[in-house]
Amino acid sequence: MSSRAKNRHVLLLLGLAAGMFGFAFALVPLYDILCDITGINGKPALQAALHEEIEASESAIDREVTIQFLAKAARGMPWEFRPLENKMTVRPGEMNRVMFYVRNRSNHSVTGQAVPSISPGQAALYFKKIECFCFEQQELAAGGEMEIGVSFFVDVDMPAKINELTLSYTMFRVGDVEHEHLISHFEAERDDT
C-alpha cells in the first residue's frame, strides 16, 4: 500500500463528511424554497399580492368560501389578541377586510410580530393579502390597545374542493425576551410586597 493513496482517501472522505455537514445547513434554505413553491406547510406569503394578481382577479365568481379566523398570543406574550369576527363567507375574487383587536396587558411597552398560518396548507397559495399587520411589527405602550386589519382576497383559481379555510395568527414577542421577563418578574415581586 502506498501511503500517498491512503492519505488521498482520508482527505476525500473527510471532504465528504464536511460536505454533508454543509448539506445539513443547505437543507434550511432548500426547505423554505420548496415550501414557498408548493405552499405545503401552510406558510402564506409574507408580502402583499402583486398588482397584476389583483387586477387579474377583479371579477368575483359565484362561489362561496368560508373563512375562520383564529388569533392567539404566544407563550410569554402578555397581549390579548383576538379577531373581531370569528367567521366570514366570501366570494373568490372579491376584496375583504377583517379586523383584529390587540391590547397590552402588561405594565410596560411591548413589541409584537404576528406570524400567519393557513390550513389546509394547500389553500396558502390562493390566499392573497393586499395589506396586513403581519407585514410589520406592532408596538403597544403599557395598557395600550388598538385594532389592526388584514385586506385580502381569495384567488379565483383556488381548487373547488376547498370551500373552508382557517387563517390563524400567532403573536410573538420581539426583542430581548429574557431581559424583559426578568423585569416583569421583579416588578411582580415588588407589587406583591
Partner: peptide, 24 residues
C-alpha cells in the same frame, strides 16, 4: 460518513437556537 455530519449539523442548529439567537 454521510449522515453523522448531518446529525452534527442539526445539534449545532439546536445549540445556536438555544444560545446564540438564531431561529432555525
Amino acid at each position: 460518513i454521510m449522515v453523522m455530519p448531518v446529525l452534527a449539523g442539526v445539534v449545532t442548529m439546536m445549540l445556536t437556537d438555544r444560545h446564540f439567537g438564531t431561529s432555525f
